[in-house]
Every structure is written in C-alpha cells, then in structure tokens.
Nucleic acid binder design. Sequence first.
DNA 1: CTTGTTAATTAGACTTATCTAAGTTGGGGA
DNA 2: TCCCCAACTTAGATAAGTCTAATTAACAAG
Lengths: 234, 234
Amino acid sequence: MTKTLSSAVEDYLKTIYNLREESHGTEGRGEGGITTQAVAARLGVAAPSATAMIKKLAGLKLARHTPYRGVELSAKGEKVALEVIRHHRLSEAFLTKVLGVEWDKAHEEAEKWEHVLSEEVEARMAALLGDPTHDPHGSPIPTLDGQVARDSGRPLAEIEAGTRVVVRRVSDEDAPLLRHLQKVGLVPGAEVEVLRAVPAEGVIQLRIGKQRHIVGLAPAAAVIVEKSEVMSDE
Amino acid sequence: MTKTLSSAVEDYLKTIYNLREESHGTEGRGEGGITTQAVAARLGVAAPSATAMIKKLAGLKLARHTPYRGVELSAKGEKVALEVIRHHRLSEAFLTKVLGVEWDKAHEEAEKWEHVLSEEVEARMAALLGDPTHDPHGSPIPTLDGQVARDSGRPLAEIEAGTRVVVRRVSDEDAPLLRHLQKVGLVPGAEVEVLRAVPAEGVIQLRIGKQRHIVGLAPAAAVIVEKSEVMSDE
DNA sequence: CTTGTTAATTAGACTTATCTAAGTTGGGGA
DNA sequence: TCCCCAACTTAGATAAGTCTAATTAACAAG
C-alpha cells in the first residue's frame, strides 16, 4: 500500500507545498493552484519535465491537475509533502546542532538527507534534539501527524519605517544570501528596528541589535518578521 | 575532473572491492579478478546488468575487464570504493553510537547514507566519534587517504576444537543473522572457546563468555576470530 | 471579435539502469 | 580429442526522468 516514492516525486511534492505556502501573498499561482513554470523554476528543470511529473502525480492521486490552470496537492500528496519537509527540517536542525554544520550549508545537505531517512532514524534524531518545533532558519517542523505551526509575520521589506520587529524566519534556499544575513545578524530571534526605507536605492536602513546596517530589498524580502510591541512569550 | 558518480556505480565498486577482500580465501574469483555472477548475486541484479555495468566501469577507467574472465578494480576505482566504504562504516558507527540504532539495522541504513554524505559531514562525524578505526561489526574503517587496517583472523567455522579465540569481526550483510549472533554473544571482542565440532550435524559447540551455545556452520563462517593465546593489546 | 504573446502541453529523443531471451565461450569430463 | 554445460555476453525491451522543438490554449489589448 505505502509504495516507496522516488526522490523526484518527493521533491515535486515538497516544492508544490512550499510554493503554495509562500504564495499566500500571491505570485506563481493560478486559481487551480501552483503554476507549472513556478515548479519548474524552483526545481531547476525545463517546463515539460514539470508537466510530465505533474501528470504523474495526478495519476498517483497525489495532486489534482487542471491542464493550463495549475496543480494542487491532494490530502494524500500533502501528507507526503509534510513528511518530506519534516525530514528536511529535522535534518537541518540535526546537522547544525549535533554535527556543527554551518547554517548556509545545512540546507543543501538536508536536501539529500530528506530522501534517505527512515522513520526510525527520524524519530531518534527528533528525540535527541528534544523534539524541536522549528529548524535553524525558523521554519516550523511539521509534527509526525502532519500538524504545522502556522507562524504569522510579514517580509521585512514591507515593514514601515520606525517599527520595531523581531526576526521569525528566513528563507533557506539561497546559501550566499544566508551567509550575508548571518553576517549582519538577521537570524531568527534578532531584534530589529526599521529606520528608513530608501525605495529609490532599493535599500532599507536597519538597526539590528546595536548595530546599524543597510540591506537590499531582495534580502529583506527573504526575512519574515513580526512586530515586537507586545513582549511575547519567547 | 571529479565527476559525480551515480549510486549504482558506487555500489558496484564497493561490491567488487568487498568481494575481492573476502575472496582471499578463494571463491567467486577468476584469475582476472571477480566473477560477474558474484557481483550480480551480491547486488541482487541479473547477470547481464552486472556485465553492462562492469563494461561501463572499464570505460570510466575504474576497473579492468577481461571478457569471460572477470573484473578487477583500477587504482582509481579502488580509491572510490574505499571512500564509499569509509562512508558506509562511519555511518554505521554513527548510527549505533550517536543515534542508538540497533546493530542489525545500522547496515541497511548506512547503505543509503553512504551515497549522500558530503566530505564535510563525513569529517564531522568522524571527529564526533573520535576517529574510530573500526565499525560496530569490527570491520576496519578506511582512513581519508585510503589506508585500511588489514586485520588477520579466520572464520570461526574453521577453528579446531579446543582452541580459545576472540571475535574480531562479523559480516554485516544479513540482519537476521546479526540478531542471532548478538543474542548468543558473538560480537567483536567476545571470548570464545571451541568445544567440539559436529560436522554430521553441521554445528559446533562453543563456550561464549561463560555461556555454552551450539551454533550452525553458516553463522560460524560469518564470524572472524583470532587466537587469543597472547593477550593482545586490546 | 480578431490578434499577439506568454504559458502550457505534446511529440519525439536521450540517458541510466534494469530485465528476459538468445547466442557465445571456456574448460572439464568421457 | 570432442562435447557439453555453466557462466558470460549480446540483443532488444522497459521504466524513469530529463531535454529541445513544435504545437496549442488562455487571455488581454485593440
């Protein structure tokens, strides 16, 4: 019944899930769901490859496909996607916390680990880490039964000047970007004040901790923050 | 230059290397090297699949192939094989020591891990484990520069009655066998006395530690032991 | 309501690794 | 020496996943 799925299938499911999450601020979605080209671009494959795989996923009842309209995961597909994402994020946490791998390298390593973790090893990793709820980049780790903490927050790039915020999570896709963010201190938990936005230059001025930094809008869009008026429980 | 090799290629190289090691007590070797069918059998593939891959390895200069005569690794092929085996045995050690995975399950997990470990993660695992020289089954872990401690020893099945030996290593291929060996205490380091061989019944009587056991010749062939007259340095 | 552009799909080919079925080859036994 | 058989290789097919080139669909702009 639980036939083993190929890594390729797992990668597509994960990608479609992630794109759906991200696109709640619209982009890359038709009404049917996620765009073929968005999937292809994220995975670095040609569009026809994505079409072919999407049709395969539909055949496996892991997704629904409306030709020319987009793709959407079925409940079954979402379940598999969440398992893969759990493996990925647990691996990232394990790689950084236990093995001391750098932040920016953990993602690509986890990209490989996520496909080879048995349920048993996954459970042991989780236990060893104390059942973490978030990975090192601040993304929530789905639970065994598929629950995902849905964090609120907005991209740092959209915050009005004069606001004080705290960093919740950063995108883990881009290693050079990640190194930059780490260097300036834009890591989960950091306290930040938006001093001034300079749209003409495409940059914003920030106070990060006690330091002042100027960062571009692109990196700032990859940083999800939350207002820090109320001293929250963290 | 260092083009990435497929898992399949890595598996064949590892298998040819392992068969060569084991066949120093002859079997499965033609003079040219390792037999096609030995490779096919070990990997669980049909003979033509092995032929095809062996020809591919020869084309990649990873092995020499004399048709109808057998295959032998080149220096380059052996180097790759040793890297894969290092990954495999480090993973076994890591899985049992750090994650607490059972002896008999570690092998199949490592079978997957060996193909996804980056050099960096490998190094960190090795450091965390204190640069172990042997895996949990007693097999030597090749060093980074390709040195392998060549342990002496003979199969327990061939030891004369009345001899006292110490277990050096056991084959890691077969999980049920491994569980059996663990149950009776035939693990690396165990002290054993061969009490009597009963060839007619295909069994031998042993004293393992303070317990007496009767084990079959098949399991006994998978256990490599060394005479323990001289109290060695371990 | 036609048209043009962009996205999506189909068509057809290639790669890797596998299989079964059908030849070959090498070496031992009569 | 000849023959036979097991082992090996060749031939041809299949399955996954990818690609480029060509076609088709959606839809916004005239």
